[in-house]
Design a protein around this nucleic acid. Structure first.
Lengths: 108, 108
DNA sequence: CAGATAACTCTGAAAAATAGAGTTAAAATT
DNA sequence: AATTTTAACTCTATTTTTCAGAGTTATCTG
């Protein structure tokens, strides 16, 4: 006897968990920045345990997409770059998370 | 005056949202299979709106990792392949989701 | 204006994702 | 037992993304 396929609502992956924030490092950066007004490059590097090249590339993508704003200054004679989430970045983050939640809440 | 960097607990990205289930299509497959005992290839293709090549590759990865079990049969004279989540797949899914949740719950 | 150094950017290599063409396998019919 | 049929792949090449480390840049300080 043939098994029957379940009826399943179509999942819209175009909105659910798609895009820049799919990558764990970029997601983590935005999550951190949602709770802290600004964080330096070196602190992010430490917290995320990423190397310069990789972290710089992820930050660049987020900046190019308008998720992050950057400000440069000096601290104890050394250059420091500060990152913060833009309004648009915050809203993209929230949107992404709500899509993610909708998806994972289905798990039984 | 120099800005101060916030103290931030180190995020363990090795457990948080890492691995096979980072990809939206593979995550969605597992989520669907967590609620439906088994689903056919063609149904997955329809629901996820993926092409044969891409869907096949994702399913293969999940199968190779032991997340999915496969069973082949015929239905109305046509070949059908059924996928279901293994116990190990289910536990990996739950683990991944709990890591994800821990991360996204930090958002303010 | 020279020295110091964090913060990148650049590069090439590696890995992953994608899509479509071609192949395969089993049931039913001949 | 050969033929037909067609879903389900597998294969291949292309594109995209990721990764890591070396080298460059920019600005403060003296």
């Amino acid at each position: 006897m043939p098994r029957t396929d379940p009826d399943i609502d179509k999942i819209d992956l175009s909105s659910a968990a798609r895009g820049l924030l799919e990558h764990r490092v970029r997601l983590a950066i935005c999550v951190l920045l949602s709770r802290h007004q600004s964080i330096s490059f070196s602190r992010l590097k430490l917290v995320l345990a990423e190397n310069d090249g990789s972290l710089g590339a992820h930050l660049r993508k987020l900046e190019d997409a308008g998720f992050l704003a950057i400000e440069k200054s000096f601290r104890e004679r050394r250059p420091v770059t500060w990152y913060q989430l833009t309004d648009s970045g915050r809203s993209e983050l929230k949107n992404h998370i709500s899509n993610l939640k909708r998806l994972i809440e289905q798990v039984e």
